[in-house]
Design a protein around this nucleic acid. Structure first.
Length: 572
RNA sequence: GGCGGUGUAGCUCAGUUGGUUAGAGCAGCGGAAUCAUAAUCCGCGUGUCCGGGGUUCAAGUCCCUGCACCGCCA
């Protein structure tokens, strides 16, 4: 029995995520977690909300709430939506947790002890009206080069010249519009990633089984331009984890917090601490997942994320771990995803373009989305959501191929033999052939699941469903019944067992439908098969079952058109 | 402007270290069957593998170049 630690990139707190976000990390991570649990492995699956930083503060202000209150509410919303999609986290934590505060400060202390943190003096725009320092992108003004009036502090969108906020003519705060700004001296901590470049590169080089997308992004950051740069890990904000060196104050850093990208990955670890606390576990219970000196040496750690998160997970976070000089668990495999586009363009939060998690669940159950998203996961390149494709895939794969199989078998049985697994008759070479075929397909399905080849896994699962229809069509119990009811009984008994098998094998993709199938077959708790032959003998003659409601309904053309229009968003 | 990605059948996509007549699912066309959510099953694919050069006995697969789309960065 293997031990597998799984983390999904943690979604930012300000608002509801769209389906592109979902398929880029949480959903495939859930698939992997469910699969390994089903295989009997010990799994720890963690995710959390990423709560710090300026966007959270601004969103809270806009909502007219204190930021802590806003985050708490949004956490509830995201937690509920995650459950709605069947995301089976062992714990859904918060980067603002007490555990993360302590652990982030602890890591900073260790990094400082190791000489990897230096203090840098800087000047930054301060808004007297807002009572805060303004990050570059929150200052706007007139471009000194081209006269464009809405140039940002970091760059002029009109002439593309790189700017410094101090260069702007008539600078103003984008938060309040105030022009009462001044440059103030400030001081920040930088993490000495550059001195760890060789160590990080050697580590990346040792990972020759990682997706090309993952390693190529890491290599680019390691070697592009002047190579890996030191990174500021503090900010002049109120909302965040106060800068401390372990549990000691950090002279000169009063009133500052750690940069969100420093504390967010540490939350992966802290989240396990939250899990322990929430479940009445001891410290050792979570440390055996994260400390190689305390039992985590046999853990395989797999991370899931969108490609925009790769640099932080291949370089910054490992720099934190390695730099600490302590035996924390490093990631073993990083599964990264490209982007899912929406109907010829990007999903856009600001323009309301595309489908968001709450809206998706309002119009269809989660299994429909899970199936489409996972079977079209953007693994090798950006992929595309279109309503036509969604409608066709759901109707064909779920309703026609799987759903109708369950329907035709159970209803035929009910009409000829009643709601009991029929007795009598014997199996023939037809059943033997199918067993052999399914055994083969199962091997491929499992191999792809283990390799986290999601689309390929989905296509093998689908092929397993199709094989059932092929069998039924050629065995034709409705025709056989007229001459040889005993033989028809055997075919139906075998087919009912196929339903049970499909439920088990499909559970990682479509857990709710899987549960309905198992309940209908009176087989709750059925386990992953050792062999197909054995699994197809699990339901015995005489056992009762029920004919379930149709597992999946079809999406009509009218609905498709309605939704297409509804989610098109407002273009500018 | 720099860097990276993508460009394969109507659609969504596979194509391992270059090697026989380029594949899958869907859609489409024809047929079988009638248990079932008009569902299922069988059969049918010559598509300048974006264009142009080049390397090679051999390139969708490597190199150069042009074009298009996308993303990141400055």
């Amino acid at each position: 029995m293997a031990r597998i630690l799984i983390t999904s990139a943690i979604p930012y707190i300000n608002g509801i995520k769209h389906l592109g976000n979902l398929v880029g990390s949480q959903l495939p991570a859930d698939l992997f977690a469910r699969y390994h649990r089903a295989r009997g492995d010990e799994v720890m699956f963690l995710c959390a909300t990423d709560e710090h930083g300026t966007p959270a503060e601004l969103a809270a202000t806009k909502a007219g709430q204190p930021v802590a209150e806003y985050c708490a509410e949004m956490w509830e919303v995201q937690d509920k939506l995650g459950k709605g999609f069947g995301l089976s986290f062992d714990h859904f934590g918060r980067s603002s947790s007490d555990q993360n505060h302590k652990l982030t400060q602890y890591f900073a202390g260790k990094l400082a002890d190791a000489g990897l943190i230096r203090e840098v003096d800087d000047q930054q725009m301060y808004s007297n009206t807002d009572g805060r320092f303004l990050p570059d992108r929150y200052v706007e003004g007139t471009c000194p080069n081209c006269g464009f009036e809405d140039a940002r502090g970091d760059q002029c969108d009109n002439c593309t010249k790189q700017l410094d906020p101090v260069d702007l003519i008539n600078p103003r705060s984008t938060i309040s519009g105030s022009t009462d700004l001044e440059m103030r001296p400030t001081k920040h901590l930088f993490l000495g990633q550059s001195t760890m470049k060789d160590q990080l590169e050697a580590w990346i080089d040792s990972k020759n089984d990682w997706p090309i997308l993952t390693t190529s992004i890491a290599k680019k950051w390691l070697n592009d331009g002047d190579g890996l740069q030191d990174r500021g890990i503090t900010r002049d904000l109120d909302w965040g984890i106060p800068v401390k060196r372990g549990d000691q104050d950090w002279p000169g850093m009063e009133g500052k917090v750690f940069y969100v990208w420093f504390d967010a990955p540490i939350e992966y670890i802290a989240c396990a601490g939250e899990w322990a606390e929430a479940n009445g576990k001891a410290e050792a219970d979570w440390q055996r997942w994260w400390r190689t000196d305390k039992g985590a040496d046999d853990v395989r750690y797999v991370q899931f994320m969108g490609k925009d998160n790769v640099p932080f997970h291949t370089l910054s976070f490992p720099a934190t771990i390695l730099g600490s000089g302590e035996p924390w668990k490093l990631v073993d495999y990083i599964k990264s995803f490209n982007y899912l586009n929406y109907d010829g363009g990007q999903f856009s939060t600001s323009r309301g373009r595309g489908i968001f998690m709450d809206q998706a669940l309002e119009i269809l159950p989660s299994d429909y989305w899970r199936w489409w998203l996972l079977s079209h996961a953007p693994e090798s390149s950006d992929s595309e959501f279109t309503w036509e494709n969604f409608q066709q895939s759901v109707n064909k794969d779920l309703a026609d191929v799987l759903g109708n199989f369950v329907s035709r078998v159970t209803k035929f049985c009910r009409s000829k033999f009643g709601e009991t697994v029929p007795t009598g008759g014997s199996y023939s070479e037809q059943e033997e052939a199918l067993i052999k075929e399914l055994q083969e397909k199962l091997q491929f399905y499992q191999a792809h699941m283990e390799a986290i080849e999601i689309r390929k896994s989905a296509s093998y699962l689908r092929a397993i469903w199709v094989a059932g229809n092929e069998y039924l069509q050629s065995a034709a119990p409705w025709a056989v019944y007229k001459e040889d009811p005993e033989r028809a009984a055997a075919i139906v008994r075998f087919s009912l067992n196929l339903i049970r098998l499909y439920a088990v094998l499909s559970a990682p993709f479509i857990p709710d439908a899987s549960k309905s199938m198992l309940t209908a077959m009176n087989a709750d708790g059925a386990e992953w098969p050792d062999t197909i032959e054995e699994a197809l003998g699990a339901l015995e003659a005489g056992q009762e079952f029920t004919v379930p409601e149709n597992l999946f309904r079809k999406i009509t053309d009218d609905e498709r058109e309605e939704w297409q229009e509804k989610f098109a968003g407002t273009r500018d």
